[in-house]
Amino acid sequence: MPVNEGFVPKIQVFEPHRASLPPLIPYLKEFWTRRAFASELARFGDKAEYLDSRLGKVWLVLNPLLLGMVYYLVVTIIRPGGSVSGMTRLDHLLIGLFTFYFAQNCVTAGALSITSGGRLILNQAFPRALLPFSSAIQAFQQFLPTIPVYIFVLLAGKWAYPTTIVPGWTWNFLWIPFILICTGLTGFGLALVFATLNVYFRDTTKLLTYITRIWMYLSPVLWLPSSLRGNMKILLWINPLGPVLNATSRVWVSGESLTQPVVLGCILWAVASIVIGGYFFISRERDFAIRL
């Protein structure tokens, strides 16, 4: 075998750092070339969790569905009647809940990804952001099977209550990929923040269970965006998931298009989360190995 076969002289310099960013272009290049690692890790994560268990897969669908039913009961008991028909409210609640869980799973699984990365982090050098990224991919894979559930409930509702207004096919559904990408990016960005915090404070994930619960109540999931009056409308904007959940309700449930402010809101929160989370995480990730 020739000695220098495939040998690309690659000089790396390791120097002290002071909570500042490493050279970003090489970092992102490394991240990109190893993206398959993140997706395989997500796939294997599923495998380890639901090892050969068909029940595991069923649970992925059943769990959000049952939760949806629970919350629906709660909401209809608290506020019976109202101007919006029951089925529409259920549709809104289900897709809002599924989308919210997608983001929440990105954040909670991502927050744990570093502290549970153990040996992988101690023994191999790679861009650490790949681990929360892998959690985001996994969260997306868990979100996908809930889409047919939503569609099924939507159609069943129309069949049971023919007066329910269900959107037919419209080009506005093309906003859906946009919404999901913004949701995933926002979730990933926030995961970067909490994953970093969890390295320094191991009770961050405990705190996170309260934060996500409050966060859901402040999001247009259990209530309709249109039910907010006056100053309360600000909840739709200061919440990182406000714009995407507002958009979710409009597009999925009503088949409406998105207004410019909502689109901007989605993009702004996604970009802000990635930039802030990315800075917070990447500037500290060289510290992770000595703190595990």
Binding site: I11, Q12, V13, F14, E15, P16, H17, I121, L122, N123, Q124, A125, R286, A289, I290
Partner: peptide, 10 residues
Amino acid sequence: ILSPTEGRVV
């Protein structure tokens, strides 16, 4: 995997 506190490694 760890970064130096002082000095450097190439």
